[in-house]
Design a protein around this nucleic acid. Sequence first.
RNA 1: CGGGACGUAGCUCAGCCUGGUCAGAGCGCCGCCUUUGGGAGGCGGAAGCCGUCGGUUCGAAUCCGACCGUCCCGACCA
Length: 553
Amino acid sequence: MIARVTQLFLPTLREAPADAEATNHKLLVRGGFVRQVTGGVWSFLPLGWRVHRKIEQIIREEMDAIGTQEMLMPVLTPFELWQQTGRDFIPEIFRLKDRKGADYVLPLTHEETVAFHARELQSYRQLPQMLYHFSIKERDELRPRAGLIRLREFIMKDAYSFDRDDEALAANFELQRGAYVRIFERCGLETHCVEAEPGMMGGSESFDFLAPAGAGENTLVTCENGDFAADVEIARGVARPPSFPAPLDAPDEVETPGVKTCEALAEFLAIDVAATSKAMPVTTDDGAVVLALVRGDDRIEPAKLDAVLGKPSRPATDDEIRAAFGASGGSLGPVGFAGEVVADESLREGQFVAGANRDDRHLRGVEAGRDFQPRFADLRQSREGDTCPNCGGRLAFETAIEVGHIFKLGTRYSAPLGARFVDEDGQEGAVVMGSYGIGLARVMAALVEQRHDEQGIIWPASVAPYDVHVLALRGAEEVAEQAAEALSAAGKDVLLDDRDQRPGEKFADADLIGIPIRVTAGKKSLEDGAVDFRDRATGEERRVKLTDIGKEG
RNA sequence: CGGGACGUAGCUCAGCCUGGUCAGAGCGCCGCCUUUGGGAGGCGGAAGCCGUCGGUUCGAAUCCGACCGUCCCGACCA
């Protein structure tokens, strides 16, 4: 197949849009792959859609290969289904009414709809089943951002598994996970499968596929020795041990005028900041004030705290703090606090300096168990300098894009929607579900983030919009045409730059668009009947006789 | 939703503080000429309700207000 640039809608730009900051945003717009229509809503232009479809096809093949069946579920969805699972309150849902006043949602994902269909599974004999589709998802995001990374409308591949029990679910879950690994490998995308927070999806267990990238909303933590990878929200790095001052028999109150931060406190008392404790009062959604406690050199990981509390929390207001502690932020501590105290594991051993719950005063020698009774949990955010919990190696932190997420849902959706089956003993039970999602535009964005240089994108061959980019320089149009024909005959998809433009512009566009192989036909070709093959990734160049092109594979 | 920046030609921007031939430049586009292995050059040309609405003023792209939209940080996030 040969596509001629003069006949394509392929608007490349010399400059990136002023408001583009992320690499994927700049290069995909400049290369004529995508255009923004409004905040978080994009069109895929012909070139971008070809890449999208290549990714889609890889996913389709791997889904089919493990027996997942493709179908299609609608975007327009009755609100009632979401009421039945209790997800109707999620603020990101777009809602609308028809002319008769009936309520609909534009779904964020399709658990409700697929569970609705799963009601037709009635016997254990019909299990297991796996279904998937590619469909548009709509999310009323507060803040779309970073090019194609956070969108309000995007195409997701979502798959769903249906099993009779947790054991069978685990088997399908592993099948899906294996397929995901192969999908991202085939796309040429580096990803790490890490344990994740199920969040609003519910369910018991979930894994993220994180692609390290220059832009993204997740932080990937990996061990230098390769035996640990996690999202920072759940990573349990090992902090350096503190150096403690001499222990005290009881807490000793000291005046600390004007000291508001742990760093200032440590300096004031001339001790290791890791031997202080940091108090963060939060208010849960039922109105209780809870004191979260970490080491002075650490930060609370809110996701961990909420997981421990089992409910969402927010920082307490100044008024709430005053009412609960009788002191202001900066001098808060666990001793004498009447509410619940959740302390990080790192505070289990040793004596720390803590706020005295009196303004400008702190307590030295505060010991958990003796001076206050906390609930211990992992609360601290892992950070630079932590070591690996498995081998003690150094941990590395990098921003990453969540390109896939797989969940064990259990009966979270099947139970409320009545997807039940009967087993061989005549016992009725809810179908056990899993769900498995990939954001295709994010895969595309992550690839650009991972594979580009100053000149433009460097697509892996598996998802490149065309296999070969043939440049016809002035005078050598015929040779270019012949080269394109030969490549096409060899089964290649060819983009032929037949524009009447100067060579520099064609080279620049070729580098920008990033097709793996560039073939140039120029004046030299008229003399020796050969063209230049250039590898986009390595820059390696070699001359190939027109007559040998078919053999180039 | 809090903080910040911004909105002038298809794109990147200047002009705004100090209201008055200020509707401007470069790129792109159209025509002609010249040039042709890394975004050339010349001549001519088309193109903008200066985000929207309202106010101040003899007069507003410029000052004031409201609204809308975009981007960044935060909050949020499947």
